[in-house]
Each structure stands twice: as C-alpha cells, then as structure tokens.
Amino acid sequence: MKVQVKLFAFFREGRFIKDDKELPDGITAGQVVDDLNIKREEVGVLMLNSRHCKFETVLQEGDIYAIFPVIGGG
C-alpha cells in the first residue's frame, strides 16, 4: 500500500523531507519509525492524517504520516 511519510526537524538529516512509500499491509506507525532507524525515545509526536497517533496505530492505504522529534516553542 502507498503511504506518504513526512519527517521534521533533525529527523530529516540524512533521510528525507517527504517520501511516498510502498509499505506492507498491517504495518504500524512504530515499525516505520524503526525502519527509518529513528530511536523511539527521540520521537515527540506522531500524526496520521493530521491527528495524533501512537506507535501501535496500524497504517492504511493513502495515509499521510508525520514523525516529529520532541520540539516546542511559542
């Protein structure tokens, strides 16, 4: 299935900003993080289609999946 994966801040270094990936059915948000060699403890926020999600969330065809490190501002 096709899923668009987006990375932010220093997660982009040596990786990508946005990538349309072909992923196996049933893959979870956490598995994508692992496959990108991003440490789970460095992850601050995961969003699936602009809503917060968890490592356990199962991705679906056509999803837009965003991975952020721990960040803040204001």
């Binding site: 932010f8 801040a9 601050g44 969003m47 204001g74």
Partner: peptide, 23 residues
C-alpha cells in the same frame, strides 16, 4: 530537555510545520 535543544537549533519557528500538520 530535548525541547531546549530544538529551540536552540530551529528557534520557536520550529512550530510552523507541526501546527500546520495539526491543522
């Protein structure tokens, strides 16, 4: 704290993309 580290790198403007993503 990791937020402090991100603030030092990207400034508070690190928020544009995440607030946009959240709609």
């Amino acid at each position: 704290h990791p937020v402090s580290q991100a603030l030092g790198t990207y400034g508070s403007n690190v928020l544009v993309n995440i607030i946009n993503e959240a709609g």
